[in-house]
Amino acid sequence: MAQQTDSVKTLDTLNTNLSSDIPVIATFKSGLIINGQSNETLHKSDLLVDIAHRFGDIGGANGGVHNFYGLDNSTDILISLKYGITDRFMIGAGRAKGAPNGVNTFQKELYYFSLKYRLLQQTENDHIPIAVTLYGNSVICGMEPLDLATSDANFQKFGERMSYTLQAIVARKFSRNFSLSLMPTYVRRNYVSYQDMNDLFALGAGARLKFSKRMAIVADYFHAFRTQESKDYYETAQDFKFYDALGVGLEIETGGHVFNLSFTNSTAILDTQYVPSTSSAWSKGQFRWGFNISRTFTLSKNK
């Protein structure tokens, strides 16, 4: 009898150890949800070449058939390289056109570099129930200083060209079909327009819902905690309103490659612009098609 329970116990331990701490994969399908970062990083020795594009407004005053529903324009373009140093740590660098809205931000020609570190990986046995990834970037504005004292591009010193993002991505894959993430975010801009905020906190949320074997809906949303004072100033003095960035996309898996069809109201691609300075609204038709063309190269040698 004792022998019997022992063997059951042993089998239990064997079975538990079998799946101990296997990390959950594919919480999201890439490092970006739409605008924001996901918890995913590149694998070791993988190089990602990424070209991201945001077209013009589909509807509203600047959209419609005469602008081919936005396809005649590009609000932002980003070319970047990312590299996995380890399976948990990656670096990136790139250059964006920048998307100045002409009221609270005039900055364009943006160079950036970024670090991303997977602090915690969710495990299949829920020993670690959530994934936590840390992300940070530094953005340098390369444009000629603008001769407009109230703008954020009237640079006097080099340091004024810098802005930064710090972010924690807390994610959980609840089931094979559903993942959710929260992204507390801090954006620091060394130089801002009159009545804008140098230090801005924001909260992002992202989700992925797989509804068929090959298709999923992804979305992300960022709300910036801008002071009422700042909002009031822009609304009364400049007749200008800030909006939260909302991206929605359809992911289609085609045996290895993921095709992404996404739409967002934000015009900019870099966090330091779309988090604090989104001024276009879904409700006014001011949303656009966005796409990323990316290709991963595995640089590790054959073993």
Binding site: L18, S19, I25, A26, K44, E124, R176, G256
Partner: peptide, 28 residues
């Protein structure tokens, strides 16, 4: 013998993902 499919390690991380997600359906 018993083995967890998800414990297989590949040289290319992306292959490992495709192996689990598209071929073995190891979540099921």
């Amino acid at each position: 013998f018993k083995v967890d499919i998800r414990s297989f390690k590949f040289r290319k991380g992306l292959m490992q993902e495709h192996f689990n997600e598209n071929y073995m359906e190891s979540d099921k």
